[in-house]
Design a protein around this nucleic acid. Structure first.
Length: 608
RNA sequence: GGAGCCGUAGUUAAGCUGGUUAUAACGCCGGCCUGUCACGCCGGAGGCCGCGAGUUCGAGUCUCGUCGGCUCCGCCA
């Protein structure tokens, strides 16, 4: 163990830990320049690197802001220099010294403080450090498992620390903007009531009310509507929300929303205000201009052209329906399919058989049975399926898909949902594979006119696509009886580079409409009363028309930071099994605690 | 609930169709070094090959199970 080495060290006598003793830090480690020459300064921080020449000793001192080179010189202070042999990486030191020019040719252009160095008059060892399990450097690639266990060390690495600086700036931008717009930040309860419909709740047993449970909020939805009834008119909150569902690279069980709600507004006003906020964030953090207004697309258009409800519009490769062209073909699979769509990939003729096999595996994940393809060659169509098509059908496909020599075209046929999803994700993959995505680009987009309901195959009933408090577009409530799937909602999502970063709606604000919605969802009057009685009651007391939106702050930060994982913008994230590698949460609790809560654990069937 | 990838010194990796003492780089420890900046040079220590069974004369390597990490499907109003 590293510990053992240090105990044996010849320098242990110098490793006495001092307190600050009245020393005051005068500068950060990125601050000193040639303008500060001759100043007596005091720096405090961590030892990044030690370069011990026997005579001179250099250390790079690191704090949150940067690095400064510190020199221990026997001529300047022999005793300070002698003690400095004991210094190791990540020791915490305070240094008093003189800012002086570096000798000719010794300037380090990579550092903002590269013109100067601090020559030590006196220094204190504020703490030692074990040898760290991984280097505190960006170039060190430790496994994520190890990084999460020693997260406090991982967070010292500049590339990760930078994400939290940016995240803070995003949050500050949000607060400034919404404050200017006269939004009121109001805190809502974290211990609240379980509301069925939607994600699984985290539950908290109530000691005072044995057998009863609080739920942690999936969102402050109902409270913010209450605040509209309260007449607050404009509310926001940067708020933790909780969903007990499986994790993903972009999903954590606790996450942060920028949640907002406004009274006396329609879709256009909410969207205008929300995109103004996102434009301000990009301007203030990355100095990037986003379009004004953001482009818009209906849900139906998104599915038609991109297969997904969160299109990445940084590149083309639009899907084209071909059902009518191949409906009479000899290819049974296509001829009998409810929907046939094709996607032309210019230059895709270069794809190898292996690559196509891999893409076939990709679409199978989304329920596709296989992947049909045609390579357009100079004098023929190279494909397992081209033989089934007549010249007329080929001509039809050529025109519809605008096929040219060198292209590949992929097809999906069958269940519309599978066709769209599979081709939609294949499109994203091909955008990356063909180098069509400008990594510097930010392409925001509104998706509107979502269906109000969607069919839950498992429960065999219609459920709210957004949530049951979303209002229907004018004249659409009647459809709830006749054609529930066709009714459109007053809902909107903000999509950025193929990620959903925010979503909201105009809410139902009359008790009659809210009751009608519950009824359409198959929720009985009694059940609605029991679960949402307080909402319906509140709507009876002069609820103003209102609507809002919530942004996933983590996802937004992730995109702005260019992070691959949401964990890189959350200080202490959970693993895929929802555990914390640092604290080892969740953990067992004492029986006494359980008794107090009136909770009894089920007997374990299997012994350890 | 399901599919896939991964687990070897402190770290990151190599380790072939099973075969002598399990390699390398970085890090660590010691020595030398007065202009380095990922300092350099010399020397050294450091391994339950995730864990448990099995196959075999013999397992880091093959099989099964298990634990852990990651990616994805389901799930996520």
């Amino acid at each position: 163990m590293a510990e053992a080495y240090q105990d044996d060290s010849a320098y242990d006598k110098y490793r006495t830990i001092d307190d600050l003793g009245g020393w005051v830090r005068t500068h950060g480690c990125n601050e000193l320049t040639a303008a500060d020459l001759g100043k007596e300064v005091c720096l405090m921080g961590w030892v990044q690197f030690r370069r011990d020449h026997g005579g001179l000793i250099f250390i790079d001192l690191r704090d949150r802001k940067g690095l400064t080179q510190v020199v221990y010189s026997p001529e300047h202070n022999a005793q300070a220099h002698e003690r400095a042999h004991a210094i190791r990486s990540e020791y915490v030191v305070a240094v008093k010294g003189l800012v002086r020019e570096r000798p000719d040719g010794m300037i380090n252009a990579n550092l903002t403080t590269g013109e100067i160095e601090v020559v030590v008059d006196d220094w204190k060892l504020l703490n030692t450090s074990q040898t760290t399990p991984f280097g505190i450097e960006d170039r060190v690639e430790a496994s994520e498992q190890l990084r999460l266990k020693y997260r406090y060390l991982d967070l010292r690495r500049p590339s990760l620390a930078r994400n939290f600086v940016l995240r803070n700036r995003i949050a500050q931008s949000v607060r400034r903007y919404l404050d200017e717009q006269e939004f009121l930040e109001v805190e809502t309860p974290v211990l609240t009531k379980s509301t069925p419909e939607g994600a699984r709740d985290f539950l908290v047993p109530s000691r005072v009310n044995p057998g009863n449970f609080y739920a942690l909020p999936q969102s402050p939805q109902l409270f913010k509507q209450m605040l509209m009834v309260a007449g607050f008119e404009r509310y926001y909150q940067v708020v933790k929300c909780f969903r007990d569902e499986d994790l993903r690279a972009d999903r954590q069980p606790e996450f942060t929303q920028v949640d907002m709600e406004m009274s006396f507004v329609d879709e256009a006003q909410v969207m205008g205000l929300a995109e103004g906020m996102v434009r301000k964030i990009f301007k203030e953090t990355l100095d990037r201009e986003l379009p004004d207004p953001f482009p818009r697309m209906t849900f139906a258009e998104a599915i038609r052209d991109y297969g997904l409800d969160k299109p990445d519009i940084r590149f083309g490769l639009k899907l084209k329906e071909c059902t009518d062209i191949v409906g009479g073909s000899d290819f049974r699979l296509f001829a009998t399919a409810e929907l046939v769509k094709g996607m032309r990939v210019p230059g895709g003729g270069e794809l190898s058989r292996k690559e196509i096999d891999d893409l076939t595996e990709l679409v199978k994940i989304y329920g596709a049975k296989g992947l049909a393809w045609i390579k357009i060659k100079e004098d023929e169509w190279q494909s397992p399926i081209a033989k089934f098509f007549s010249d007329e059908e080929k001509q039809g496909l050529k025109e519809r898909l605008e096929l040219e020599v060198g292209d590949i075209v992929f097809f999906q046929a069958g269940n519309p949902e599978v066709v769209n999803t599979a081709l939609g994700y294949l499109r994203v993959r091909m955008g990356e594979r063909m180098g069509l995505i400008d990594k510097e680009a930010f392409a925001p987009l509104w998706v509107t006119d979502f269906p109000l309901l969607e069919y839950d195959v498992e429960d065999k009933r219609w459920v709210a696509r957004h949530h049951p408090f979303t209002s229907a577009q004018p004249g659409q409530m009647e459809l709830l009886e006749s054609d529930p799937g066709a009714a459109l909602a007053r809902a909107y999502d903000m999509v950025l580079n193929g990620s959903e970063i925010g979503g909201g709606s105009i809410r139902i604000h009359t008790p009659e409409q809210q009751r009608a919605m519950f009824k359409a969802l198959g929720i009985s009057a009694e059940e609605a009363e029991a679960k949402f009685g307080f909402l319906i009651e509140a709507l009876q007391y002069g609820a103003p028309p209102h609507g809002g939106i919530a942004f996933g702050l983590d996802r937004l930060a992730m995109i702005l930071c260019g992070a691959r994982s949401i964990r890189d913008v959350i200080a202490f994230p959970k693993t895929q099994k929802a555990t914390c590698m640092l604290t080892e949460a969740p953990g067992a609790v004492e029986n006494k605690q359980l008794r107090e809560l009136g909770v009894k654990l089920r007997e374990k069937k299997k012994q350890d």
